[in-house]
Amino acid sequence: MAASAHGSVWGPLRLGIPGLCCRRPPLGLYARMRRLPGPEVSGRSVAAASGPGAWGTDHYCLELLRKRDYEGYLCSLLLPAESRSSVFALRAFNVELAQVKDSVSEKTIGLMRMQFWKKTVEDIYCDNPPHQPVAIELWKAVKRHNLTKRWLMKIVDEREKNLDDKAYRNIKELENYAENTQSSLLYLTLEILGIKDLHADHAASHIGKAQGIVTCLRATPYHGSRRKVFLPMDICMLHGVSQEDFLRRNQDKNVRDVIYDIASQAHLHLKHARSFHKTVPVKAFPAFLQTVSLEDFLKKIQRVDFDIFHPSLQQKNTLLPLYLYIQSWRKTY
């Protein structure tokens, strides 16, 4: 089996927390979720979201995140109150960019949308954001926290390059993509939290790379249903696996070995980020709550012996909000 052949990389499970039942964490995340308004986002309300009498641009960002990046939404709820709305805006910006690729039928249209967001970032730093909910909220975040323009532009530029429907040539190319998107998002989150620390940035770099790799793995069944495969070609070739094997949902050992190798790289990034947690300011830990969902996925895929098409991998963990709150309460990542 794939797991038994390579099992030495995987460390002990961390979500089991001995003695936790003896201490009762304060009510927090679930209460916040219940208090949030929840009407559906419609095209009509989106168009009017920044106008008078609408929910408001902040509510639009929150709803977009809740629907399109639920794990990011849950993590954002546990940030300090003064930072929450800015991170909602930042993550909503990322969602807007991420959904361009799947929402257009022609690359030219995707490039036009990316050009809109490039100009939007430029206009935000000229205090002239367009009348668009996410743009307005992002402008507020930039003004409030003096966010670095370079990180925002890196996210747009990398998403634009990724409009080509090509597999990553190697794991390094996937890591570079993750660094310029997910890690950049974390650098900006640290700025919102008021953290300027080399060790925190180092952790953000590795956690962002782990996030990018896990996202690529999780999306494999969806991409396969659209006749697309984006997994690193070098690892596929190493194990003699073709793109057609993934399109046919082949579950042979060599296919699972490909998934094992890729998942192991995410695991190593996560492990390395945690190896120097004592040197990272505690104030930075809330920015890294996504490690909970990353670890949850890596454990699940290990349990199914790296069968990327196993139905259990597509099921939401209903206990994730609780695990996130516990992680926040324990002040760790």
Rank of each mutant, 00 (worst) to 15 (best):
S45K: 04
S45Y: 12
S45D: 04
S45I: 06
V46T: 06
V46D: 04
A47M: 15
A47R: 15
A48Y: 14
S50A: 15
S50K: 07
S50E: 04
G51T: 15
G53F: 14
G53E: 08
A54F: 15
G56H: 13
T57H: 13
T57M: 12
D58Y: 07
H59D: 10
Y60L: 08
C61Y: 06
L62P: 05
E63H: 13
L65Y: 04
R66I: 05
K67T: 09
D69Y: 01
D69M: 00
Y70F: 11
E71I: 13
G72W: 13
Y73G: 00
L74M: 13
L74H: 02
L74C: 12
C75Q: 11
C75L: 14
L77R: 02
L78Y: 06
L79D: 02
L79P: 04
P80R: 06
P80S: 10
S83T: 14
S85E: 09
S85I: 09
S85A: 13
S86N: 06
F88T: 12
A89Q: 01
A89C: 04
L90G: 02
R91K: 09
R91I: 01
A92M: 07
A92E: 00
F93I: 01
N94S: 06
V95A: 12
L97K: 00
L97D: 00
A98I: 05
A98P: 04
A98T: 09
Q99D: 15
K101V: 14
K101N: 14
K101F: 14
S103M: 13
V104L: 14
E106W: 09
K107H: 13
K107T: 12
K107S: 14
G110V: 06
G110L: 07
G110I: 04
M112P: 12
M112A: 11
R113L: 08
M114N: 08
M114S: 07
M114F: 14
Q115W: 07
Q115E: 15
Q115D: 12
W117S: 01
W117G: 00
K118N: 06
K118A: 09
K119S: 10
T120E: 03
V121W: 00
V121L: 10
E122S: 13
D123L: 10
I124C: 04
I124Y: 02
I124N: 01
C126Q: 15
C126I: 15
C126G: 15
D127M: 05
N128V: 15
N128K: 14
N128S: 14
P129N: 03
P129I: 13
P130Q: 08
P130R: 06
P130D: 05
H131S: 15
Q132E: 13
V134S: 06
V134F: 03
V134N: 03
A135G: 12
W139G: 05
W139T: 06
W139F: 11
A141L: 00
A141Y: 00
A141Q: 00
A141K: 01
V142R: 06
K143S: 08
H145K: 05
N146R: 13
L147Q: 05
R150G: 06
R150C: 05
W151N: 05
M153N: 13
I155W: 03
I155A: 07
I155S: 05
I155D: 01
R159V: 04
E160D: 10
E160H: 15
E160T: 11
K161F: 08
K161C: 12
N162Y: 12
N162G: 14
N162I: 04
D164L: 15
D164E: 12
D164K: 13
D165V: 11
D165E: 13
Y168M: 07
R169G: 12
R169W: 15
N170E: 08
I171Y: 09
I171P: 01
I171Q: 08
K172W: 10
E173L: 04
L174V: 07
L174E: 01
E175R: 03
N176K: 13
Y177D: 05
Y177L: 03
Y177Q: 07
A178W: 02
A178P: 01
A178G: 14
E179V: 02
N180I: 06
S183L: 03
S183Y: 00
S184G: 12
L186G: 04
L186T: 07
Y187K: 07
Y187R: 07
Y187W: 10
L188R: 00
L188W: 01
T189P: 01
T189S: 10
T189H: 12
L190F: 04
E191R: 04
I192E: 00
L193W: 07
K196S: 06
L198K: 04
H199Q: 09
H199F: 11
H199W: 10
A200K: 00
A200P: 01
A200R: 01
A200M: 01
D201L: 05
D201K: 05
D201S: 05
H202V: 05
A203S: 06
S205W: 02
S205I: 01
S205Q: 05
S205L: 06
S205N: 10
S205M: 05
I207E: 00
I207Y: 02
I207M: 06
A210F: 00
A210R: 03
G212Q: 03
I213H: 03
I213G: 00
V214C: 15
C216H: 11
L217M: 09
R218H: 12
R218T: 04
A219S: 15
A219L: 05
T220M: 11
P221V: 12
Y222W: 15
H223C: 14
G224H: 14
S225A: 14
R227D: 10
K228M: 14
V229Y: 04
F230K: 08
L231D: 00
L231W: 02
P232I: 00
M233F: 08
M233R: 03
D234H: 03
I235M: 08
C236M: 14
M237N: 13
L238D: 13
L238W: 09
L238H: 12
L238S: 14
H239N: 09
H239D: 02
H239T: 01
S242R: 04
S242W: 03
Q243C: 04
Q243V: 04
Q243E: 04
Q243P: 04
E244Q: 07
D245W: 05
F246S: 03
F246E: 02
F246G: 03
L247W: 04
L247K: 05
R248N: 05
R248F: 04
R249W: 10
R249L: 11
R249A: 11
N250K: 13
N250C: 12
Q251W: 13
D252P: 07
K253H: 13
N254H: 15
N254F: 14
N254Y: 15
R256F: 03
D257Y: 07
V258I: 09
I259G: 00
D261A: 09
D261T: 06
D261K: 10
I262Q: 01
I262L: 15
A263E: 01
A263Q: 04
A263P: 03
A263D: 05
Q265D: 06
A266E: 00
A266W: 01
A266P: 01
H267A: 11
H267I: 07
H267S: 09
L268N: 08
H269C: 02
H269L: 01
L270K: 01
L270V: 12
L270D: 00
K271D: 15
H272F: 13
R274T: 02
S275P: 05
S275V: 10
F276R: 06
H277N: 06
H277R: 07
H277A: 14
H277C: 11
K278G: 15
T279Q: 13
T279F: 08
P281H: 06
P281Q: 05
V282N: 09
K283L: 13
A284M: 02
F285S: 15
P286H: 08
P286K: 06
F288D: 00
F288H: 00
L289F: 09
L289P: 00
Q290N: 08
V292E: 03
L294K: 02
L294T: 12
L294G: 02
E295I: 07
L298A: 01
K300Q: 14
K300Y: 00
I301V: 13
I301K: 01
I301R: 00
Q302E: 09
R303K: 11
R303H: 12
R303C: 09
R303L: 11
D305I: 02
D307T: 01
I308A: 06
I308C: 08
I308P: 11
F309Q: 07
F309V: 01
H310A: 10
P311R: 09
P311N: 09
S312M: 10
S312G: 10
S312C: 12
L313N: 02
Q314A: 11
Q314V: 06
Q314K: 07
Q314D: 10
Q315N: 11
K316S: 11
K316N: 09
N317K: 09
N317T: 15
N317V: 05
N317F: 09
T318I: 09
L319T: 10
L320Q: 07
L320V: 07
P321W: 03
P321G: 10
L322F: 10
L322H: 05
Y323L: 14
L324W: 06
L324V: 08
Y325N: 05
I326G: 06
Q327S: 09
R330I: 12
R330S: 11
Y333F: 11
